[in-house]
Design a protein around this nucleic acid. Sequence first.
DNA 1: GAAAAAATCTACTCACGAGTATATTGCATT
DNA 2: AATGCAATATACTCGTGAGTAGATTTTTTC
Lengths: 211, 211
Amino acid sequence: MNEPPAQKAKSPFPDAAQRKAAREAKREAVLLAAVRMFNERGFHATSLDDVALSLGVSKPTIYHYLGNKDQVLLECVSIGLAQLQQAAEEARRLPGAGIDRLRTFLERYAQVNMDDFGRCVIRTGEELLSPASAARFRAKKREIDDALRALIEEGVADGTVAAPDARLLAFTLAGALNWPARWFDPAGPMSREDAARAMVDVLLQGFAPRP
Amino acid sequence: MNEPPAQKAKSPFPDAAQRKAAREAKREAVLLAAVRMFNERGFHATSLDDVALSLGVSKPTIYHYLGNKDQVLLECVSIGLAQLQQAAEEARRLPGAGIDRLRTFLERYAQVNMDDFGRCVIRTGEELLSPASAARFRAKKREIDDALRALIEEGVADGTVAAPDARLLAFTLAGALNWPARWFDPAGPMSREDAARAMVDVLLQGFAPRP
DNA sequence: GAAAAAATCTACTCACGAGTATATTGCATT
DNA sequence: AATGCAATATACTCGTGAGTAGATTTTTTC
């Protein structure tokens, strides 16, 4: 009864769907290799020859899967931004007090910023992208920022969040939780989850002692 | 009685000290023009020809005052770092409770990061500098970070600062107060001082309501 | 099995921008 | 007056790396 699927899985003759998936996998491998090198050495210090070499292929192969260097970077940051956006949507859908939903989002936000694609979002200045790509980049970041601000305002509305100025609080929180993109070392003593939770705790409680 | 000085000031024949000062002024003008363009367009997108043109001179003139592009950048970040270091020393010398000294430092820190040279410190990744310059850059940043951590620990010691983990608090505060280098607009509605104070307030109090 | 399409390579072009060789002018010191 | 140094310019070199042309091989489709 399960023979045909077994054969199908083993067959060296992929069908159309499998071929498409394989192509997609290669595309993603290129993006992953690229984003790691961008994060490590910086965008300008990474040539597409380097990226190709690290994958054991040649530069035109990259151009076969992605248009040009600008597009490689745009795809990388778009993946990171999609992760953040998903975190925002999940938090927005959550029931409960404003502060708890905000907290959930912030922790996830910090975690993404410690990962390959999230780090790239933070480290990528707009000047690295073409004007057209920079505009799309800015628009997406704007959406995340709006979501954060909305979450804050909902918390203020239900009285669980204290914020004299939602905009400023949003920038402050974002800044604190973006910074791990620069300093966090996954090989260090703390896990992403622990670091994220500890940072959000500090931001929530403040560094003045509570009675 | 004041005739000789008056003549001296008016004289079109500068003495040695004045010539040295003029040279220094030119050097600084180059650095200011450079740092502004670096902040605006990014380091790689700014050629020294651009900087020279904006000052109405030619590229070799810049090389006459500064060694090369790497050194231009190193000087720029060094100026910003010196401002931060000064803020740290002043706070360390201050009398009073740990939390107040920390607060003073943090506000000044934020203000510097909204200014030309401070912004450049934040926006400059180590990959932009030569290995030798990057090492010096890292060492100086390290000193600032140590000073911040010391201030925090002194506050914890005298019971005015609550910090389960001084290292993590330092990163969190630094991140929040670095971020204005990316978003703050001096032409906007808020002054640097107001923005700095408001951000530090949020960090001090936390966004959970206090009873 | 032939034709078309996909995947990949080698070997180029071309622009840009850092850094330099060298000339010119003028002030400074003797 | 002669020599030398400071300041500046013009006009180059030269490396690097993005992007491309065109050939080659493999796979798919008919």
